[in-house]
């Protein structure tokens, strides 16, 4: 009985859930970028008064969820489910924030694809009748990610030109069932379907070239989505990827062309939108927070205002592990897509 499923990977919702609100908190560098005016809170100090960066990241996760709820005048007790994750080992950011919020919680790890993963799962659970209000969130923090994945911050060295900068940012969305009539920041935004990504790995091993590692997964998910939905790129105003960055976007465009998909000018990448070139971030932004804050601060607001009516939000994750990397393994990629429409 799979009546809400198209093909192998795509789901469509009978009663599409709404995104009622979104909230974002970012670091100072993101605040100084082109989207600076859209964020709810820009932190001057990346420890936010805490004694570790990890604690600051937790606080960002928790506070961004609380802010989204406030916009709908809701309390954590009214939320049926919290879905979210981050980049740190054992997703400690999400786990500890969930302890404070005390909302029933399913932790997710999809690397930088977490925002799309949480929206997709949350929408499926709402449409399935298992939840009415679902909070979705994802965070990343430049300083916590650097110390886990790379080198100490004070170590002097150069980045390679394909490197990307992990975004310090937390973004959350509040999903509500179609019939919801309470207060809301957004009144017209619906999640109508989505495509669950497969892990795709074309053998890229360079941890400083995550855009190239993720591009094949993004192309795979997009191709599956269009095939199973029987749509073309022109059915969307925008195809938004999470954090392919400039070089990853180039490879994504090429891989799509190989599959006979012409993206023309419809493709945008959050990693390219969040920083500008003068900020010296090599190939752009990355991290769970990158797509989470770009979606919730910028894209949803533009959509609510009517700038566009249908987008495919496809957050991309490099499922990188320092351990696997040291053992010579490649970096598998994944991309999950959600169809977000204005109605």
């Amino acid at each position: 009985m799979k009546q809400k499923r198209l093909g192998r990977q795509t789901v469509v919702f009978e009663a599409p859930p709404r995104i009622a609100a979104g909230a974002t908190i970012v670091g100072d560098m993101e605040g100084a970028g082109p989207l600076g005016g859209y964020f709810d809170l820009i932190l001057e100090d990346d420890t936010w008064g805490e004694d570790t960066w990890e604690k600051a990241e937790r606080k960002m996760f928790e506070q961004t969820v609380r802010r989204a709820l406030e916009r709908c005048a809701m309390q954590p007790a009214e939320i049926d489910l919290l879905l979210g994750g981050d980049l740190l080992n054992q997703i400690i950011t999400a786990n500890f924030a969930a302890r404070e919020l005390a909302i029933p919680f399913l932790g997710l790890y999809g690397a930088c694809s977490t925002m799309a993963e949480s929206l997709l799962l949350g929408s499926m659970l709402i449409d399935g009748g298992y939840a009415g209000h679902v909070a979705c969130a994802a965070t990343s923090h430049f300083s916590t990610a650097e110390r886990q994945y790379r080198f100490p911050l004070e170590m002097g060295g150069q980045t390679t030109p394909t490197a990307q900068r992990t975004v310090t940012g937390a973004g959350s969305s509040l999903l509500v069932e179609a019939g919801y009539a309470g207060g809301a920041q957004f009144r017209h935004i619906f999640v109508t379907g989505g495509t669950i990504g497969r892990v795709v790995d074309l053998g890229i091993t360079d941890a400083n070239n995550m855009g190239a590692a993720m591009a094949p997964a993004a192309a795979d998910t997009l191709a599956a989505h269009l095939r199973e939905q029987n749509r073309t790129v022109s059915d969307y105003d925008m195809i938004v990827t999470g954090d392919l960055g400039s070089f990853g976007s180039e490879m994504f465009n090429e891989l799509c062309r190989d599959k006979g998909i012409d993206l023309s000018d419809r493709h945008r990448d959050c990693g390219n939108m969040i920083f500008d070139l003068a900020q010296k971030v090599d190939c752009g932004g990355s991290g769970c927070g990158c797509s989470a804050v770009t979606l919730n601060a910028f894209l949803l607001r533009r959509m609510e205002e009517g700038d566009f009516t249908r987008m495919l939000f496809m957050a991309t994750g490099a499922l990188m592990s320092p351990t696997a990397g040291m053992q010579g393994d490649s970096i598998p990629g994944i991309a999950h897509a959600v169809v977000i429409e204005r109605r």
């Binding site: 030109p161 053998g203 070089f247 490879m251 891989l255």
Partner: peptide, 20 residues
């Protein structure tokens, strides 16, 4: 063993990626 697709993609990435 690397598949032909992997080889092709890695070669393409190596050719096109921005250089130091």
């Amino acid at each position: 063993q690397k598949t032909a697709q992997e080889q092709r993609y890695q070669q393409r990435v190596n050719e096109k990626m921005p250089r130091s």
